[in-house]
């Protein structure tokens, strides 16, 4: 399993940080587009009319909490604590699912209020940005559930902590992207 590497760092972890760097430019482009097009829609609904701050504040809190569960899951796996690795992995995935539920509810509400992806520039940029983020959360949930299954199969011992750490990096990155989206899309209107 262990290999000599020139830096002493694990190759998968290094690759994953490079991937996260690359994702910065993906979300950077999406967020830039949202900001560039802000206020340019020729018809409503506008962000002020439609964004639900209390609801999104709660879902933001949920996602932040899931990050806490994630670090605790990693710590549990690393010290070989089977029960708590499962509890925290499940919690993380569960909280992620709740976040997705909030997003599904939010999207449905918006559509009812007349905002679809084709309605105006706000709709196009909003759904593309938050939808891409939501897709990342969904992939993360599936990833975490896979790890949970591996744990129940008894194949997630402390020697596999790196697998959890990398999943965690992904999860936290998706979280920090949301921190930015919550501010620039929801709070700065």
């Amino acid at each position: 399993m262990t290999h000599y590497t020139a830096t002493g760092l694990d190759s998968r972890k290094l690759a994953f940080w490079a991937f996260i760097g690359s994702e910065c430019l993906l979300f950077g482009s999406l967020i830039s587009t949202y900001l560039v097009y802000k206020g340019r829609s020729v018809r409503g609904p506008t962000p002020q009319e439609i964004l639900n701050i209390p609801l999104t504040s709660v879902s933001t809190f949920v996602l932040l909490t899931s990050s806490l569960a994630m670090v605790l899951a990693l710590a549990a796996v690393a010290r070989g604590d089977k029960l708590w690795s499962r509890v925290w992995l499940f919690s993380t995935a569960f909280l992620g699912s709740i976040f997705l539920g909030f997003q599904a509810y939010e999207f449905t509400e918006f559509v009812h209020n007349g905002l679809t992806i084709t309605t105006n520039l706000f709709g196009s940029t909003f759904y593309t940005l938050t939808g891409t983020h939501g897709a990342h959360v969904a992939v993360g949930v599936i990833w975490l559930l896979t790890l949970l299954v591996r744990s129940f199969q008894g194949k997630l011992g402390p020697d596999k902590a790196l697998n959890v750490e990398i999943a965690g990096l992904y999860w936290h990155f998706v979280d920090v992207v949301w921190i930015v989206i919550f501010t620039v899309v929801y709070l700065i209107q």
Binding site: L14, W17, A18, I20, G21, S22, C24, L25, S29
Partner: peptide, 10 residues
């Protein structure tokens, strides 16, 4: 490897 792309994005 993270902050260089992050700065570019910014």
């Amino acid at each position: 490897i993270f902050s260089l792309p992050l700065l570019l994005a910014l």
